[in-house]
C-alpha cells in the first residue's frame, strides 16, 4: 500500500490539490478566496500533465545547441516527453489570464457593491429585486 502510494506520490498530491481547489470554490463565500481555489485547482492539472510526461530515468529534453544535429545525439538516450510541458506553458498563460480577469471583476464588484462576500452580494441583489417587486 505504502509502496503503491510512494510510487504514485505525484498523483496523490494532484488529487489532493484538486479536491482542495474544488472544495475552496464550493465552500468559501469570499470571491478572492474562490479565485484562489480555482488557481489551486488549475495548478493540480498542470502537475498532472507534468507528471505524466516524466519518463523514469529520462533526462530533461534539452539539447546542447552544438549537438543539435541528430547524428551527434546518443541514440539510446532517454528524455522526458517535452510535449506536455509545452502544453502546460499554454495552460499556465490561460490560467493567468483567467485569474487576472477574475480579479479585475472582483475589483469592479467591490466598487459596485462595497463587498466581496457572497452572502452580502446576494442580499443586495435580493433587495434590488424586492424593490422592483418580484
Amino acid at each position: 500500500m505504502v509502496e503503491v502510494l510512494a510510487e504514485r506520490f505525484n498523483y496523490a498530491v494532484i488529487i489532493i490539490l484538486m479536491m482542495v481547489g474544488l472544495y475552496a470554490v464550493i465552500a468559501t463565500g469570499n470571491l478572492v478566496k474562490r479565485l484562489v481555489g480555482l488557481s489551486i485547482f488549475q495548478t493540480s492539472v498542470f502537475l498532472l500533465y507534468i507528471s505524466m510526461s516524466k519518463v523514469f530515468g529520462g533526462a530533461p529534453p534539452i539539447f546542447d545547441y552544438k549537438e543539435m544535429a541528430y547524428d551527434k545525439l546518443d541514440p539510446n538516450a532517454i528524455y522526458s516527453n517535452p510535449l506536455p510541458h509545452v502544453l502546460i506553458l499554454t495552460a499556465i498563460v490561460v490560467g493567468v489570464a483567467t485569474l487576472s480577469v477574475g480579479l479585475a471583476l472582483v475589483v469592479r464588484i467591490r466598487e459596485a457593491y462595497g463587498s466581496i462576500e457572497d452572502d452580502t452580494l446576494a442580499e443586495a441583489d435580493y433587495s434590488l429585486e424586492l424593490e422592483k417587486g418580484v
Binding site: 470554490v25 470571491l31 474562490r34 479565485l35 480555482l38 483567467t98 480577469v101 477574475g102 471583476l105 472582483v106 469592479r108 464588484i109 459596485a112 457593491y113 452580494l121 441583489d125 434590488l128
Partner: peptide
C-alpha cells in the same frame, strides 16, 4: 448584477 453574473460564469 452583470458583474456578479460574469464572475460566476468565469468561475
Amino acid at each position: 448584477r452583470a458583474l456578479t453574473s460574469s464572475f460566476n460564469y468565469l468561475v
